[in-house]
Nucleic acid binder design. Structure first.
Lengths: 143, 143
DNA sequence: AGATAATAGTTGGTTTTGTAACTAACAAGG
DNA sequence: CCTTGTTAGTTACAAAACCAACTATTATCT
């Protein structure tokens, strides 16, 4: 690696690509629903995987519990999700999207699918799937 | 894309991978030199590409000028860089690393090279180079 | 049971970022 | 020149992230 530079340094490149790729999707959930990054993540986790606790969301999304807590508060304030205490263990809250939250999710999911499809189309054929596998590996979600 | 989920959504995957990949490098520049993310980026730009203006750094690194301004201030406060007014256009400042800054850069560069090499080694052979090309493309730095 | 530790989630105070407005210097057109 | 516009960089205030300490509840160990 005699010719080290920032365009070969993977952490930097990953960050640049991630920021660029997030930019226009970010505009949508921000402008259309006033949501922050953590909020759409929580919303999508609940929308895609059903009822979850805050801890479960944090573990799946690699989010600190304070971040989850605040995102949940804001989503609850907008009536996008509801909380239900676990009857057996009253520390635990089961979170679920309200109908309003599901509607928002449905809309944003469509935007996301379309956005992803555009990204995939901009890459050489087959490249996207290979990229996903490498990224999953780097993200530590797959050995 | 009937089976859409967060592990297929490229912006999300890119962010997860970027965060995971940045984590331990971040520890080094933070713990060892008390630097923030934007600061190491500025430092590396100056270390790798020599004297630059704040605008040039912003353009190359996709950083807003206020972020660059603050990073430059902090690096200057630690005597890692020095400013020199352009004589022809006195709005412009030419930034350059001091010897102390160059020493820090040299150290961090070694860490970065090693860190990058470890990442590359964790991927299948040839995969890293292919990944770099795709990321550059997604970052919009290459058509 | 009773003390101790662990877990779920929240809150407070500080740092960092984002957005917009600002100063200073140069450029261009009349 | 002298208004008007543009560019380089800074600053101020509000929004958001970070970290540590906190409450409440459950688990463990003797």
């Amino acid at each position: 690696m005699a010719d080290f530079n920032l365009n070969t340094f993977l952490p930097y490149l990953l960050n640049q690509a991630a920021e660029a790729a997030s930019l226009s999707f970010q505009q949508v959930y921000k402008d259309r629903y006033g949501m922050l990054r953590t909020e759409w993540r929580v919303l999508f986790h609940l929308g895609l995987y059903g009822q979850l606790t805050a801890s479960e969301i944090g573990a799946r999304a690699s989010l600190h519990k304070t971040k989850v807590s605040r995102a949940v508060s804001r989503l609850e304030a907008r009536r996008y999700l509801s909380r239900a205490r676990d009857t057996a263990d009253r520390r635990v809250e089961h979170l679920a999207l309200t109908p309003a939250g599901q509607a928002v999710f449905k809309d944003l999911r469509q935007v996301a699918e379309r956005y992803d499809a555009d990204l995939v189309a901009a890459l050489p054929p087959g490249e996207a799937q290979r990229l996903r596998e490498v990224l999953l590996r780097l993200a530590g979600r797959e050995a």
